[in-house]
């Protein structure tokens, strides 16, 4: 009898361990400045995807944008973290119940849920990062980024800096978003150096560093000396190989030079924080562009190359990059965002 009781107790303890384990690092809801003054203050909340709010990427960047909005505009902010796909809907609802004026979904994977929520609560404003729809409700604000522009610039740098005339690209999972990276990069490489050969391969996952590692090994082994990745955690394997083989790598989404300061020469960064801040600012001033997609490119400060690029990239190339930026903003250079546009351009 005692044994059975003991077992139960142990299982109970283990289970509790799991919950405290999750609870500790994950404050369910953090509303800064709790006592709202008569609802004069705007209230904005965001739902993260499974990466969580401190993922050192996308979600963190979005949260930093909101924090800036709090500090500079006096907006009340909060977030809900999602542990799995099933949480998106609940988390969106929770933010609605907390009387947020604007509710963000961060990441294209919750595109469907955000639209449903927007249709269910027409009085509340919603926003989504990296996704858009054919029919957009008036209270929904999709934001997408011209990743092809930053990819073009890092592609240009790769094309100029390669000594073997071979560069690589590793993609996570094929789709609209990663296509923008791949074809933008390809165009940049060819623009810089039309003889340059490009090796491109998809890992089929965003969370398999061992696969990213092998793909990078194979590409470096075949003579590529610079590889760009748009593959999330998978790309970490690539950065590890770049270090071992003393080759160059290009990071994505945020400045990845910290991962390997001597080998990550630049990164194609995406400033989700700017987008979050700007929409908040507009809203505060009474402007709302829901129903239409906002596109953040170079000219809007939505994408760029990492500020640490000057460590490895020669100044002449960076100067040319600055000129290219201008040309892109002025529309002199058109950058394709998928295979069809790429072929049409040739």
């Amino acid at each position: 009898m005692f044994k059975r009781g003991g077992t139960l107790l142990l299982v109970l303890l283990l289970t509790m361990g799991i919950f405290t384990g999750c609870g500790g690092q994950q404050p369910q809801q953090k509303n800064e400045s709790e006592d709202s003054q008569e609802r004069e203050v705007l209230k904005i909340g965001m739902v993260t995807d499974v990466g969580g709010v401190y993922d050192k990427a996308f979600n963190q960047s979005a949260w930093e944008g909101l924090q800036r909005a709090r500090d500079e505009l006096g907006i009340e902010i909060g977030y809900q973290e999602s542990k799995q796909e099933a949480d998106y809907e609940d988390n969106l609802e929770r933010l609605v119940e907390q009387e947020n004026d604007l509710v963000w979904g961060v990441g294209y994977i919750m595109g469907k849920q955000v639209k449903e929520a927007a249709l269910n609560y027409p009085d509340i404003k919603f926003g989504i990062i990296d996704n858009t729809y054919d029919e957009i409700p008036k209270n929904l604000q999709p934001v997408i980024f011209k990743d092809q522009e930053s990819s073009f610039l890092v592609g240009y740098i790769a094309g100029k800096m390669t000594k073997t005339n071979k560069v690589g690209f590793i993609g996570g999972v094929k789709g609209d978003v990663i296509d923008r990276f791949e074809y933008g990069y390809m165009t940049g490489v060819k623009y810089a150096n039309s003889d340059c050969e490009l090796l491109s391969q998809y890992a089929g996952a965003f969370d398999k560093p061992a696969i990213g590692r092998s793909i990078a090994e194979s590409m470096y082994g075949k003579g590529a000396d610079i590889i760009f990745h748009a593959s999330g955690d998978t790309g970490n394997g690539m950065i590890a190989v770049a270090q071992e083989k003393n080759k160059y790598a290009i990071g994505v989404d945020r400045d990845q030079s910290k991962e390997a300061p001597d080998h990550v020469i630049t990164s194609a960064i995406k400033k989700v924080d700017n987008a979050m801040f700007n929409v908040a600012k507009d809203l505060k001033e009474g402007k709302w562009n829901g129903g239409e997609t906002i596109v953040y490119g170079l000219s809007e400060g939505g994408v760029d190359i990492a500020p640490t690029s000057d460590k490895h990239v020669p100044k002449e190339i960076l100067d040319e990059v600055e000129k290219l930026k201008k040309k892109i903003i002025d529309g002199e250079i058109k950058i394709p965002q998928n295979e069809a546009e790429y072929k049409a351009m040739k």
């Binding site: 384990g21 999750c22 500790g24 690092q25 994950q26 990466g51 969580g52 401190y54 963190q60």
Partner: peptide
């Protein structure tokens, strides 16, 4: 994840 969050912050 708990220990990582405590020691290094983040997820």
């Amino acid at each position: 994840m708990f220990l990582g969050g405590r020691i290094f912050g983040g997820s």
